[in-house]
Design a protein around this nucleic acid. Structure first.
Lengths: 227, 227
DNA sequence: TCCGATCCTTACACCATCTGTAAGTGTTCC
DNA sequence: GGAACACTTACAGATGGTGTAAGGATCGGA
């Protein structure tokens, strides 16, 4: 069953939304304290967030931005402020849908179902600059193509993406590959890195794995930007 | 550069939309004959379709349904009919966004960008009931998991999804597997089907491949509905 | 209820691909 | 120039996908 978290401070409206969604077969969950909202949401990691813009603590925009930076949880912004500016801003911050209150029950449910459907299977996607990586299968999405990476190459790229732009030590990489740091086979790691580089190049990716002498590696864009 | 195809019979409106989108940096493409619209769209396979509901030939709904059955190309329905019924119907048929004309330039562009962003990397996804299949890698998305199917199993499932619910002949399946109908190895096909069934079962999929004696197979939901 | 046609299962051997090993070649920087 | 570090290449073992073969199960008409 799909789980939805409502972020709305007006009790009456919250009850109403909750009721509608529950009757439609969703498991509903409510945020009741309005600071560190994004963290609370990350904690619960629902399948969808219903977010009001006017909150007592954090602003809805702030929540939106923060949540989207750290996850791919879909957000439906629902507000009484009927302002184009708000809508554009919310969408720009990564919201997936925008509705104004009051809102017909049918429309709400249709949009909710729509967003959830569109997010099917995206839960484990890591975002790189210009591509996506599925953490479960190591399927790489790039432009209009998709490729399944060999497990080891996938694991390496995954580590680089989790530490976006930062330096990744050889230890980190070895751990990711073999779940142990005891017996570090630098050479084997090296070979796997070379292979990843080769496939990235063959896919025309504009990222490079650059060595940081004596420490580890970093994933950078070709123009020098950290990725 | 992202490519958008406009399906709109009114020349004036078409020009205006085209202009707005081009200025925003999209490559724009227009459909000018309004039958077999879905096929034309599949041919071009743009990154987004802007679809009017009132068309001289095919109805917009029809186009929507047909396109979504055979691809995951995102559709933004743009219509002058401001009816909740239309909106619900369009969304139900798989449309991704719904806007009413006239529409502010900024809102249009925001929604377009939003849909395209959400679809990053989803271009080759086929939709089944309750799961998605990547046609390039045969990655299967189901609930919150994803699995890469072996090539043959992927090819078979792909054929079933393209002919959703219809009967698929052994010929079709052999063609998909070996690109030839000359030498049909019924047994090899059989074994591959068994393997697909087994992985589907192990994933808890509520679809079944049912034999149609003497003809071929059909993918049906466990409750008997064609999938 | 029997029998042939159709459909299904299982085990095995082949083959492609991924992976680690080994040995040697570049590169950097003091 | 040399030592540490980084990279490349080729090879062989392991893994997992595929076709083959043989036999078992099921269906449906006589």
């Amino acid at each position: 069953m799909k789980c939805i978290t409502i972020v709305e401070d007006e009790a009456l409206m919250r009850e109403e939304l909750s009721d509608i969604l529950r009757k439609a077969g969703y498991q509903v969950d409510e945020i009741l304290t309005f600071d560190h909202v994004a963290e609370q949401l990350l904690e619960r990691s629902p399948d969808l967030v219903l977010l009001d813009l006017n909150l007592p603590g954090d602003s809805g925009f702030q929540v939106c931005r923060e949540l989207k930076r750290k996850s791919a949880i879909p957000i439906l912004v629902l507000t009484s402020r009927d302002q184009l500016r708000d809508e554009l801003h919310a969408l720009d911050l990564g919201a997936d849908e925008f509705l104004t209150k009051p809102c017909r029950r049918e429309r709400l449910l249709a949009r909710v179902a729509n967003v959830i459907r569109r997010y099917e299977g995206r839960a484990h996607l890591l975002e790189g600059s210009g591509f996506l990586l599925d953490r479960q299968t190591y399927t790489l999405y790039l432009d209009n193509r998709s490729v399944v990476l060999p497990k080891n190459q996938g694991k390496l790229l995954e580590v680089f993406l989790i530490h976006r732009g930062e330096i990744v030590t050889k230890n980190d990489l070895c751990l990711a590959l073999w779940q142990t740091t005891e017996y570090i086979d630098e050479n084997a790691l090296q070979v796997n890195l070379t292979r990843l580089k080769k496939t990235m190049a063959s896919l025309g990716m504009r990222q490079q794995i650059a060595p940081v002498r004596g420490v580890g590696y970093r994933l950078i864009a070709e123009d020098g930007q950290t990725s």
